[in-house]
Design a protein around this nucleic acid. Structure first.
Lengths: 151, 151
DNA sequence: AGCATTATCTGCATTCATGCAGATATTAGA
DNA sequence: TCTAATATCTGCATGAATGCAGATAATGCT
């Protein structure tokens, strides 16, 4: 791989990540949630129910702060507590599928704009991009854990 | 483009964005800044000096809150205020290139893990990905503006 | 020169997320 | 059964980000 290629990636990629995070913050603000709260809901809906403790680990909060986070989300009807029948100390939290948030509306501009970007791609390019996204996602999750371990 | 392709993209992409934002939040926490503060620094260093008001617009904060944000960043030596000689009401803010933050250290895990992902790509794939990132970045910025306009 | 406009800053107040330490409930093990 | 360990919750406290309204400073127009 040639040097110029990597340099261009190095220049473009940080700005790209910056834009995505900024967009995430703006979305949270638009739906009236803190960033952590909104992305906790996302995590729950993408990866399914998990215990309060697991959610604490994912978000990097203490268990106490996580209790309060779940309280807030439950109060807004975004999340549901289910006691684990196998171990009644544990509380499973699951996303309620609803659009109590107007999350769909908040994401509409991104969907439109990104839709145009993807629409300009060939099927092969879409496949390549999807492959990349699929590999990059766990890489970010691993990086998150590593950041938190070295605190 | 076939349906299955788009469905896979639709499943993978939201998780990908979720991971990036979560990683952004974890990074901010690791360096001891609020998410807005950290991504304001990023915006300044990527796009160069801008007025306080422009930064307010970019972050979606009021001008008062932005003054405080600049105060915080200046106090930590991440940013510098420069009075605009052409219009002395205006304050230009520019990023100070320093690693007063151990931002490099905080980003190291992501660099490593993502580096592996990119290393597995052919030069052609790298070029295609870079093209995509380059097109997606302004799309996100436009989406941010649209979200804020419809508040 | 005088006035309206613009850009940033300040004082004040408030909301909110979060940590911490101890409480409670449940399970597991000796 | 008694005790230790585990999972979540609560009370309390605090720091921090933010908004808002008015203050200050600079510019531009008439």
């Amino acid at each position: 791989m040639s040097r110029p290629d990597l340099e261009r990636l190095g220049a473009v990629y940080p700005r790209y990540l910056n834009a995505i995070v900024l967009h995430g913050l703006a979305t949270a603000q638009a739906v009236g949630l803190g960033p952590t709260d909104l992305y906790a809901v996302g995590t729950l809906s993408f990866y399914g129910r998990m215990t309060s403790g697991d959610l604490a680990a994912k978000t990097g909060l203490t268990t106490g702060a996580t209790t309060r986070l779940i309280d807030r989300l439950e109060q807004r009807g975004l999340v549901r507590r289910v006691t684990d029948p196998a171990d009644r100390r544990r509380v499973l939290v699951e996303a309620v599928e609803t659009d109590a948030l107007e999350l769909d509306a908040a994401l509409a501009p991104a969907r439109d704009k990104l839709g145009e970007v993807f629409a300009a791609c060939s099927p092969a390019e879409i496949a390549a991009l999807t492959d990349h996204f699929e590999r990059a996602t766990p890489a970010f999750h691993e990086a998150i854990e590593m950041i938190r371990e070295s605190d």
